[in-house]
Amino acid sequence: MKFGVVVFPGTWSDRDCGQVIEQVLGAEVRFLWHKDRDLQGCDCVILPGGFSYGDHLRCGALARFSPVMESVVTFAEHGGLVWGICNGFQVLCETGLLPGALIRNDVCEFRCEPVHLFVERADLIYTANLDRGAVLEVPISHGEGNYFADAATLSQIEQNGQVVFRYCQPDGLVVPAANPNGSLHNIAGIVNEAGNVLGMMPHPERCAEAELGGEDGLKLFNSVLDSMREVLVAS
């Protein structure tokens, strides 16, 4: 099982992801430079957090024209696992691999704090080790994480069950007070219809070791690893 972590100019969570994959998970990691097109046989490509291209024009708008993204789009269209975290989620929306957009937080503040996530989908490769209704504590760190989609798209996303994580209270109640950024329907993470492309604003790589304050994020990495092991063994 090999993870790829894409590095754009301005990406800052690439080494955090690499640390979790290599040191905590014990899996193989390759850093994929934005100018390269070769995904080096990776089974799961992570678009990490940061400020790709300085967030110029719009968050994620310029990253999608990187050579590596052409390969990532093709990989995703053929069912490859593509996991966008924070800025990576913004890139996936700009690329059109996920619906909607992420706009400025309604509070006009950069929010860097732990939040709670209600797990809506436990049938995905990313969430296979979780139960539906589980509550995870994962940090956010963003100024533009306010999920927006027009009414028709939003209703489609809900009907298709594409919402994976919603901001909630520690007891799992999804209420406006638990929403840190104004996201519609408290959306913190969504998948594409096929379920292979996940975008989420919270940072699971920042809570994957007890020393760093929590291990809930590791559950997602472990889910991918365990699911892919089964797939690889079966094939």
Binding site: R104, D106, D150
Partner: peptide, 13 residues
């Protein structure tokens, strides 16, 4: 500009 249906927190501030 942001569409009218999109909340504009900068504008509100």
């Amino acid at each position: 500009t942001l569409k009218q249906v999109v909340n504009d927190p900068q504008g509100l501030t």
